[in-house]
Design a protein around this nucleic acid. Sequence first.
DNA 1: TAAAAAAGTTAGCCATGACTAACAAATTAA
DNA 2: TTAATTTGTTAGTCATGGCTAACTTTTTTA
Lengths: 228, 228
Amino acid sequence: MTNKLNSNNLTKSEEDYLKALFQLLIEDSSVKVGNNQLADYLKVSPASTNNMIKKLKTKNYVVSEKYGKLDLTEEGKSIAVRLIRKHRLWETFLCNYLNFTWDEVHEVAEQLEHIKSKKLIDELDRFMDFPEKDPHGEMIPNADGEYSVLPKITLSSLSDGDICQLVAVDDGSVNFLKYVSEIGLALSSEIKVLEVREFDKSIRIQFDNTIETVTRKFADNVFVKKVV
Amino acid sequence: MTNKLNSNNLTKSEEDYLKALFQLLIEDSSVKVGNNQLADYLKVSPASTNNMIKKLKTKNYVVSEKYGKLDLTEEGKSIAVRLIRKHRLWETFLCNYLNFTWDEVHEVAEQLEHIKSKKLIDELDRFMDFPEKDPHGEMIPNADGEYSVLPKITLSSLSDGDICQLVAVDDGSVNFLKYVSEIGLALSSEIKVLEVREFDKSIRIQFDNTIETVTRKFADNVFVKKVV
DNA sequence: TAAAAAAGTTAGCCATGACTAACAAATTAA
DNA sequence: TTAATTTGTTAGTCATGGCTAACTTTTTTA
């Protein structure tokens, strides 16, 4: 029985599409993800997506019916999780050993996650003593692709008086990450919701003797664990 | 004055060609390097090389006249040296921190050297405390692209009775590197040339109480510093 | 020095993965 | 329930970077 699990011959593009689709499926859920959403997410034309999806279907990484929603096969999911493992391990390495800041890691990790070498990533993992979370608070899958999904809710879902702890932030936007650190928020910060303003859904929060007002959009990207 | 030195927009292929040409020019010398040699070295067809050379000429990285020999511009050399810096720093990291062996590093470093991030490589350099040599004994260029070329001669150029020290090995072939470590040679090993056999130019050498006979081809890839 | 060999070049083809424009199906709203 | 809008698909184009086959120039050698 030839073990093909290790001979990952995907192109960078194919990998990008699989990872994007995985992220859109929110790592499992059965929300309908269509061709245009994937195109938007990857900032390519729907025609490009359509084309690549066709290719990934023949390779058995993606399933979908004509005009139907997209889904990943187990094999497709497995590849995506391995990419996420690589991405998060590299981010951790960049932050903890190479003086990168929160907002600088993403772009470089996007490149590093495509390096093909199982030994490299497993040794990097060992070198850092098997970290559980990346610098943004997200769980890092282990070498077998197993990982627990962090139970998280967005700051925007809380109500007046709630107290929570920051467990993760969305790492998609550099500007957002800069903003987060500029106002002084960090992982594990305890945040108290002072008031959710009905008018524009902006939220007045308190943390470390600081009081700030943040927008709904901001709060959508901040993941917390409720304390009270 | 907009500083374009940092915005290195070359493709992986373009980088590969520039580095290959640099290596063939033995890092400076004016030996004639032609289209076919470059094609051989890169294991592509002469037509492909011809095509790429044309492109690199319009971008001012390469100079040559029709049917003439190839050469790099200063800009072309600078890019090649930066690639070599990255390659050697990554090899050093893989060997010294991630338990890679001599013969395993090259392939992965070939991928890593194309990662585009000045901060990444400079921080990696700092993290390892600015190493001078890579695991094969080659000098690592500094952040400004400066480096001294190791004064080295091949083991095959010595004569009976000479004593030398191993300073570097050619890192081009995995099989060769495995062979070197299997017989017990390592950087700094002191080697005594017992006899150069006229018949086939094979060399009988002694090191660490071991006596081995190596071929001319082997000795061509071993770089040494003469001691006696 | 003329013919053979080697080296370099050109033309034309292929796959990948983008794109636009045009069209078809499905969904939503009037 | 039909019309409008959104979503998905197809056809055809482009750039990159490979390839082969044929041709030209240069170099070698007989």
